[in-house]
């Protein structure tokens, strides 16, 4: 089984996209998940519902709305143009934005559950010891919520690797920029190049299995106590 240069480029691009998306989602998702876990605001319900929406809508539908809203006639597109960013569809940055929306619930929900499970006690103890909020976050919350972060990372990464419909709609299939593995496999299948499709699909499955296994194995809380 041999992978072509185009296949390898697609693999590289996919890993890049999934890594950047996961990293940004962890940074953006933490305050959002924290707020959702702790707030008593009446906005909690609506916000949680919006976060979960990408689970409901078919990816091609999300992709189509992104194409329309980020295009030159949409509000999103007019905003990015006014900010001097140009139009996002058919760019790598556009894929990152789309993936963040698409994978949002997969990162926010595990974090929210982890934060909710902490309870008030550790925070009260930290406060009596006069830890600053930032200090509390890094020395108390983060270590305690580690399994939640692991799950969020794995799900966010895996879900972005497996993303297809959204990328198909706003990617434009540009080599090295928007042609990710899932699209490349689809192209092989559609072109009836089943051997290449099997090769690429198999390497994707094997790679993903190894990464997920390694993550679960090396996580002390999730792995050994599991």
């Amino acid at each position: 089984m041999e992978l072509s240069a185009a296949d390898l480029a697609a693999i590289r691009l996919t890993l890049e996209l999934a890594s950047i998306t996961t990293l940004l989602l962890l940074v953006l998702g933490t305050p959002l998940a924290w707020w959702l876990a702790r707030t008593r605001s009446r906005w909690k319900g609506p916000v949680a519902a919006v976060v979960a929406l990408p689970l409901v809508l078919p990816p091609t539908v999300i992709g189509f709305y992104l194409l329309v809203s980020l295009g030159p006639n949409g509000y999103g597109g007019q905003l990015t143009q006014a900010l001097g960013l140009g139009l996002l569809p058919f760019t790598f940055a556009g894929l990152v934005v789309a993936s963040i929306i698409y994978s949002l619930p997969f990162v926010v929900q595990p974090l929210q559950n982890a934060f909710a499970a902490l309870g008030d006690r550790p925070l009260e103890v930290a406060a009596t010891l006069r830890a600053s909020p930032l200090d509390t976050f890094f020395t108390v919350i983060l270590p305690l919520a580690r399994p939640g972060y692991l799950t969020a990372t794995v799900l966010g990464f895996a879900h972005t690797v497996g993303e297809f419909g959204v990328v198909l709609m706003i990617g434009g299939n540009i080599p090295g920029q928007t042609r990710v593995v899932s699209v490349q496999i689809y192209d092989h299948v559609e072109a009836m190049e089943y051997a290449q499709a099997h090769g690429l699909a198999l390497s994707m499955v094997v790679f993903s299995f190894l990464v997920l296994w390694a993550l679960y194995h090396f996580n002390p809380q999730g792995g050994r106590r599991g």
């Binding site: 189509f64 194409l67 329309v68 980020l70 295009g71 030159p72 006639n73 949409g74 139009l87 569809p89 058919f90 198909l168 709609m169 706003i170 434009g172 299939n173 540009i174 699209v183 689809y186 192209d187 559609e190």
Partner: peptide, 20 residues
């Protein structure tokens, strides 16, 4: 400057939304 649709329907969407 190419952007490719997987089929002619998708290609039409790229143009009709003004993205291309």
């Amino acid at each position: 400057r190419f952007v490719q649709g997987e089929n002619i329907t998708q290609t039409f969407q790229f143009v009709s939304t003004g993205n291309a």
